[in-house]
Amino acid sequence: MSTLQKASASKNPKTARGQRTRNKLLDAAEIAFGEEGFHATSIGDITGRAQVALGTFYVYFDSKDEIFRALVAHMGHMVRSWIAERVAGSTDRLDAEFKGLVAYIEFARAHRNLYRIIEEAQFVAPDAYKAHYERFAEGYQRNLREAEERGEIRSGDADTRAWALIGMSVFLGLKFGIWDTQRSPEDIARDAIDMISGGLKP
């Protein structure tokens, strides 16, 4: 565990009230970083939006950099939980892919700051950016291997497939979750699943 991780762990809230305050700061940081960007945002901007005292910030985070990294991890957890809830009870892997893509686009529309924050993390906190997608890939690989064992999909390299499917979700989320929100997530997911299941061969 790094020094930063140890410091962050030592500040984990011990009470429900403390967790609520920390979440308020993360919610405020999502808005501030999403609207203004990392460099233009100050700790005062975050505490002002959260309506907490400046000193309260340092009960939970040591710096702007630390809350940004925590936010990237927090948002990753949020989207994974959001999708997991919506794919529960899927009939097979392709059904799970359909429901997962619908859920991802819906999440992108509900959390429009996600893309700016994650993309900025490439430059502000590249290790957090990499970890964000690696966490997705780990779960994806496991799900694909299990689906292959059940005979729901043909055999193939789970690592390559996981990253390809993640890439598709990320850019469909950007296009139809942020830039163009006219089509329903279900319509978009149906077209994507048709390509996944049938490929591009005529």
Rank of each mutant, 00 (worst) to 15 (best):
K130S: 14
R109G: 04
L101A: 07
G76C: 07
Y115D: 09
Y104W: 12
E66H: 02
A108C: 10
G37R: 10
S10C: 01
F61Y: 15
D92T: 08
E120H: 03
G89F: 04
L71K: 03
S184Y: 03
H132K: 02
I105E: 03
A53Q: 14
T160A: 13
G198H: 15
M1E: 12
F176E: 05
A189P: 08
F107R: 02
E134H: 07
E30H: 09
I105T: 05
F123P: 00
V87E: 13
D62H: 11
A158H: 07
R112K: 13
R161F: 08
N12H: 11
Q5H: 10
D62V: 01
T47V: 15
L174I: 12
E30W: 01
R142F: 10
E36N: 15
F123T: 11
A147P: 12
T91L: 13
A128W: 08
F98K: 15
A96L: 04
G48Y: 02
K99C: 04
K99N: 14
L172T: 09
H132Y: 15
L165N: 06
K14T: 14
V59P: 00
F176P: 05
G167Q: 07
A147Q: 11
G199P: 06
A7Q: 13
V79P: 01
A128K: 07
A121I: 08
E120N: 04
V52D: 05
P185H: 09
A108W: 00
M75F: 01
S42F: 03
A84S: 13
A50G: 05
L200K: 10
A9F: 09
Y60F: 14
G156E: 11
I178K: 07
I178A: 06
G55H: 04
A32K: 05
K64G: 03
L71P: 08
R20P: 00
F33H: 01
K201R: 15
R69Q: 14
W82S: 03
V170C: 01
F136M: 09
R135P: 00
F33S: 02
L165H: 09
N12Q: 15
I117G: 02
G55M: 06
E85M: 05
Q141V: 11
Q122V: 01
K130M: 10
T91G: 06
P126C: 04
R116G: 12
A162K: 08
P13D: 06
S42A: 12
A103C: 08
S184R: 13
F38G: 04
R145F: 02
R93W: 13
A121E: 04
L4A: 15
K175L: 12
I67V: 12
F123A: 05
A121H: 04
R183N: 10
H74V: 00
E36V: 02
F123Y: 14
I153M: 11
M195D: 02
G167D: 05
E106S: 10
F107N: 01
L101M: 13
D62A: 12
Q19I: 03
S2K: 07
Y115C: 01
K6N: 13
R142M: 07
F61V: 02
W163G: 00
V102W: 06
L25R: 02
G89Y: 06
